[in-house]
């Protein structure tokens, strides 16, 4: 339970008790008040950090990298939240920031290693077996191997649909691609993974 301030008719402040999880409207209303800005942001971090962390972590695999990137994502959110126009759910807007930051990070890594931008690096495959905080069953690791065979953006589409269960419409806003194209991309990804799994059983 948390205390929050609401703005009514742009001039009256009242205090309410907020039950977690807080809504987008509650966070945004409090964020607009200088004294409550930090509190609002703490609510947002508390509510959404796990979702953001897992989106990033499944893309970069390494915990430390994911930790750094999540911090970058939330710093970007802090700096841009006042310009958020509420046209979509806040989490989808944050996902968009997270995917941009993550894809940029992966591109930079590949450029440093002189690898093609579209294919996941061998470094990620190595991390899957030697990285910290990765302990799964054989089938889970094979599935991750299969996912790593996908091009970067298709890997992202697969993760957003398969693990985060996002609707195509939300993904369409985030990735600025039509819902039909995303469905086709997801379909191809699923087929490729299925084939990989059958071949490596």
């Amino acid at each position: 339970m948390a205390t929050g301030y609401y703005l009514i008719d742009n001039c009256i402040l009242i205090t309410l008790q907020i039950e977690h999880p807080v809504t987008d409207e509650e966070i945004l209303a409090a964020f607009r008040i200088a004294e409550k800005k930090e509190q609002a942001f703490a609510w947002l971090v508390k509510r959404d950090q796990k979702k953001v962390y897992w989106l990033v972590r499944r893309m970069v695999l390494d915990h430390e990298d994911a930790n750094d990137l999540v911090q970058d994502v939330f710093i970007r959110v802090w700096n841009s939240l006042s310009s958020f126009r509420g046209e979509s759910r806040l989490i989808y807007w944050i996902y968009r920031i997270a995917t941009n930051i993550t894809l940029t990070f992966l591109d930079k890594k590949k450029r440093k290693a002189f690898l093609p931008l579209e294919e996941p690096g061998s470094e990620l495959r190595e991390k899957l077996y030697s990285g910290n905080f990765i302990n799964g069953t054989a089938i889970q690791l094979t599935l991750q191997e299969a996912i790593l065979t996908l091009p970067e953006r298709q890997r992202l589409v697969f993760q957003l649909r398969y693990y985060d269960e996002l609707p195509y419409e939300a993904m369409s806003e985030m990735l600025e691609t039509s819902a039909g194209a995303l469905k086709a991309s997801y379909h191809h990804a699923v087929k490729k993974i299925e084939k990989y799994m059958i071949d490596h059983q």
Partner: peptide, 14 residues
């Protein structure tokens, strides 16, 4: 589209 994948629990090793 993928019966084998559909049969797996949607979990990850991280």
């Amino acid at each position: 589209w993928a019966p084998l994948l559909a049969a797996l629990p949607r979990a990850h090793p991280f």
